[in-house]
């Protein structure tokens, strides 16, 4: 199973706001940025996994995401 990466730019934080992930003032020079967050969305558009870290230094690792996907596919 291969993976493709797409990098999308949310310059005005519109989608970040729509997902309620704005972290005001936390960026360089107190700009507003997203809190780190990871979702797995299935082919039907339903959220199947959410990882909202409580510590900005601790983020989901690739192995964790793969474990989640494997578990959901069983």
């Amino acid at each position: 199973m291969g993976f493709n990466y797409r990098f999308l730019s949310d310059e005005n934080a519109e989608v970040i706001r729509r997902y309620d992930l704005l972290h005001p003032g936390a960026g360089p020079r107190h700009t507003d940025i997203a809190r780190p967050a990871e979702f797995y969305i299935d082919s039907g558009g339903i959220v199947q996994w959410v990882n909202l870290t409580g510590n900005i230094a601790v983020r989901a690792r690739p192995e964790e995401a793969l474990r989640v996907i494997d578990a959901l596919k069983q």
């Binding site: 519109e14 809190r35 969305i41 339903i46 959410v50 909202l52 870290t53 510590n55 230094a57």
Partner: peptide
């Protein structure tokens, strides 16, 4: 590092992911 927003309205498991 632990001062992160609540994100109470973030999409939850089982919900439709907001389109964009």
């Amino acid at each position: 590092h632990r001062q992160v927003p609540l994100s109470a309205q973030a999409p939850r498991v089982g919900e439709n992911a907001p389109a964009f």
